[in-house]
Design a protein around this nucleic acid. Structure first.
Lengths: 138, 138
DNA sequence: TCTTGACCTTCCCAGAATGGTAAAGCCCAC
DNA sequence: GTGGGCTTTACCATTCTGGGAAGGTCAAGA
C-alpha cells in the first residue's frame, strides 16, 4: 500500500476532509494528482506528506497564501531560514493584533455586563451604551 | 435639517458605509426607508439613531443576528435586562473562546520562531515541525 | 437653460475556509 | 450482478465588507 490512495484515504491519512483536499488542489497548493481509469484522484506518499504539511500549517492558523509560501520554502533546498522566520513572525504579529482587538472588545462587554443587574427590570446599561453616544466628545 | 438625509449623509452621521446601510436593510435590521421622487432613500432622525445603535453593536463584535435581537430588546419597553445581559455574556464567552484558541496558536508560533536562527542557512525548526509528524502517537 | 460633477440606484463579483446537497458514475465484496 | 459505499462535478450558504459597472438624479455654476 501507500501506493495509490483514494481521496477518502488521503483525507484520513492527512487529517483534512476530501472537500478541503479538492479545494486546496483548486487553489494550487497541491498538484493535480493522476486519475484512475474511473476518474478517481490517486495520491501517492509524497502527496500525503504535502497534505499533512498543509494541515499542520492550517492548524497554526496560516492562510492559504502563506501556506503556499511555506510549501515553496519547504521545497527549496537553498532557502534561508530567515525567510521562514519572517513569515512566522508576520503571522504572529497579525495574530497578536487580532487578539488585542478582541480583548478590547471583550473587556468592554464584560464591563457593561457587570453593571447590568440582569433581572426582570428593563433598564440596562448595555442598551444605554448602544443607544446613546457617549463616545463622541474628543 | 435632520429631516431627510440621503444615504451618504446617513452614513456620515452613523459611521457606517452606504454599502453597509443597504446591506443591513436587506438583512432586515432596519426598515426600508421611504424614497424621494428620484428613488433615493430618505432617512429621518429615528433611522439615524437606529443606524448608530447598529454601528456600536457591530463595534462590540456582535453579529447581525445578535444585533437584531438587541434591537428588538431595545424597542421592547417591557424587556427584562436579564435577556440583554444573557446575550452579552454569551457573546463574551464566544469571544473568550476565540481569544483562547488564537493565543494557543500564537504561543506555538512564537515558540517555533524562537528556535529558528533566522539566517541564511536552510535548516529551520518551523519547517521541520510542519513536515514531520511529531504529533501523532496517542 | 445647459453642463458638469457628485451622488444615488441596482446588480454582480470577490474574499477565506468550510459545510451541505444533489445527480451521476465507479468499485468491490458477496 | 447487485447493493452500498465511495467519488466525481457543480451549485449554494455562511459573514461582513469592499470594489466596480451601467445608468439615473440632483444641485450649482456658466
Amino acid at each position: 500500500m501507500a501506493q495509490g490512495m483514494n481521496i477518502g484515504e488521503a483525507a484520513k491519512a492527512s487529517g483534512l476532509s476530501p472537500k478541503m483536499i479538492r479545494w486546496y488542489e483548486e487553489q494550487g497548493l497541491i498538484p493535480r494528482p493522476p486519475r484512475s481509469e474511473g476518474g478517481y484522484r490517486v495520491y501517492g506518499p509524497k502527496d500525503i506528506e504535502r497534505l499533512r504539511f498543509i494541515r499542520r500549517a492550517r492548524d497554526l492558523g496560516f492562510g492559504v497564501r502563506q501556506i503556499g509560501q511555506l510549501l515553496a520554502l519547504w521545497q527549496d533546498r537553498g532557502r534561508a531560514s530567515a525567510d521562514v522566520k519572517r513569515l512566522a513572525l508576520e503571522h504572529a504579529a497579525a495574530l497578536e493584533a487580532r487578539i488585542e482587538a478582541l480583548r478590547g472588545i471583550l473587556a468592554a462587554i464584560r464591563h457593561l455586563a457587570e453593571h447590568c443587574h440582569g433581572d426582570a427590570r428593563p433598564d440596562c446599561p448595555i442598551l444605554e451604551h448602544l443607544a446613546h453616544d457617549q463616545e463622541e466628545h474628543p
